[in-house]
Design a protein around this nucleic acid. Sequence first.
DNA 1: AAAATAGACAACCGCGGCGCC
DNA 2: AGGCGCCGCGGTTGTCTATTT
Length: 344
Amino acid sequence: MGRSPCCDKTGLKKGPWTPEEDQKLLAYIEQHGHGSWRALPAKAGLQRCGKSCRLRWINYLRPDIKRGKFSLQEEQTIIQLHALLGNRWSAIATHLPKRTDNEIKNYWNTHLKKRLTKMGIDPVTHKPKTNALGSAIGHTKDAANLSHMAQWESARLEAEARLVRESKLVSNPSQDQVGSGSAPLTNKSRAPQARPRCLDVLKAWQGVVSGMFGIARDSLESPTSTLSFQENMPTIPTVGLISNDFAGSCFEKPNQMQGLKENLDNSMALHEMMTYTTDEPWTADNIMEGLSDMMGCESDVQILSVAGEKSNANYSTGSFEDNKNYWNGILHLVNASATWSPVF
DNA sequence: AAAATAGACAACCGCGGCGCC
DNA sequence: AGGCGCCGCGGTTGTCTATTT
């Protein structure tokens, strides 16, 4: 049996939306909510198919859409998440508030993909195109670690996106942004009610890594800084998470430690994480718990089923104590800077 | 100035997942 | 249990604008 068409195409308009059509759709949804997309066009007096209306609403008319240029942070997030998730635009979009999957997809295809290609990085695998270079300078181990981490992070993000969806489905309809009688808005139309701690750890980690490489905030905000960021990280081209032994080796170098200290404003996310997500003071132990959340997060069972044995999930080749010392070092710096630096 | 080309973004299409009956 | 309908996702195409020739 063939699949029935999504709607009766005869007499339906296609192509660009006119301001009048936008107005009709907007007015209808504001008053009634979208309800069934299939039934909406007739009720709203539009000669469009329901799918077209849904797309127009989600990608253009929704009130909570941020339009305009992507920030550097957003670019980096997209690249990192793409490295982990691939072309899972909706999953990526759940981590970029106010951006639609379509917008992110377009931006990737028109800007980021080309940029990575230019840098000699395969936009599909996120690895340098010339394998010889990587192996010649001994990056095989890091690559293997990254691969593991990518698998786990991918599974984690997948589970997280699913939970976000599920939590939205059961949320109070009165929280919807349009009319009280509206059907629940789409998954992407509402921000998560509370950001899971593990996400903040990811964010913090990225900030710390930026600090390690001596990237000043100003340069982060410059249009070319993505390149410099990537160029400074040749062994891990596009993934913000790095193995702990690699991070540890950076920390062992005093000049880079100093670099981190001088660029602690890049670690604001870490400070932010430590000040708002919990009443407990942040310690190396609960940060590591957060990192552990990143691996197991909300549903160990689901992730285990996706990604294999948990014993493979070691973020680092270092010991528990090494990790603890590592985080204690960061905490010390952040706490110190919080007291003497006007940055925070 | 006109044509060709490239870039950016909006919109469409087909498929898969999920829930309902 | 399985058919059916709806929704959401990702790939692709279309259209408009800017830039180059």
